[in-house]
Amino acid sequence: MQHPATTSALLCLCSIGAFAAQWAGLPLPFLIGPLLVSATIATAGGRLLPEGYGFPNWLRVTFITVIGLIIGAQVTADLFQTLPLLGVSFSALALFVVLSHGFNYAVFRLLGGYDKATAFYSASPGGLFEALAMGEEAGADPARLILQQFLRIILVVTLLPIGLSLWIGAPIGSSAGMTFARDAVPWSSLPLIALAGLAGIVVGHLLRLPARQLTGPMAVAAALSVSDLYHIDMPQWLVNIAQIVVGTALGMRFTGLGPTVILRGARLSFISVGGMLLMAAVFAEALHLFMGEPFDVMLISFAPGGVTEMALVALSLQANPALVTLHHIWRILVTVIGLSLIGRLLRRHL
Rank of each mutant, 00 (worst) to 15 (best):
D228C: 05
G72K: 04
A77Y: 04
L277W: 11
P27A: 15
V282Q: 09
A319F: 01
S124T: 12
S316A: 13
L278V: 14
A77H: 05
M310S: 11
S269G: 13
D183Q: 13
V313A: 12
A92W: 10
T179M: 06
L209I: 00
L333D: 04
I153N: 08
S272K: 03
G135P: 10
G45C: 00
I244L: 10
H349K: 05
F80K: 04
R152L: 04
A223Q: 08
L128H: 01
I168V: 15
V313S: 07
P191A: 00
P125F: 06
A184T: 08
G256V: 00
V246W: 00
G305T: 01
T43D: 10
L339S: 06
F90C: 09
I70A: 07
P304R: 04
G306L: 08
A5C: 05
N320A: 13
M298N: 15
S89G: 04
A170C: 01
V107I: 15
P142L: 10
V220Q: 07
L26A: 14
F90R: 07
C12E: 05
T7A: 12
V156N: 11
H231S: 13
A223K: 07
P294T: 10
H231D: 09
V61A: 09
Y53P: 11
I71Y: 09
S89R: 15
L155D: 02
P259N: 06
Q318I: 09
T325S: 15
S8A: 15
L151H: 01
H231V: 08
G200N: 05
P235E: 05
R208H: 04
I329M: 14
P84S: 03
T7G: 06
L192W: 15
V75N: 08
I332A: 11
F283V: 13
L166P: 02
G113H: 08
M291D: 15
A284R: 04
V185E: 03
P142E: 12
D296C: 08
G216L: 08
A280G: 05
A92V: 10
A123Q: 07
P161H: 12
A184Q: 14
A222W: 06
V307Q: 10
G25P: 09
L224N: 09
W167L: 14
Q74D: 09
L10F: 06
L289A: 13
A133Y: 05
L13F: 12
G275T: 12
M1W: 05
F55D: 09
T118A: 11
S301M: 08
A117Q: 15
L278K: 07
L28F: 05
V202S: 03
G163P: 04
P186Q: 00
L59M: 15
L159H: 00
V336S: 06
R267N: 05
S301D: 06
V97G: 11
L339F: 09
G173W: 00
L214P: 01
F254N: 11
F80Q: 07
R267W: 13
A123K: 02
G200F: 01
W167I: 01
L11R: 08
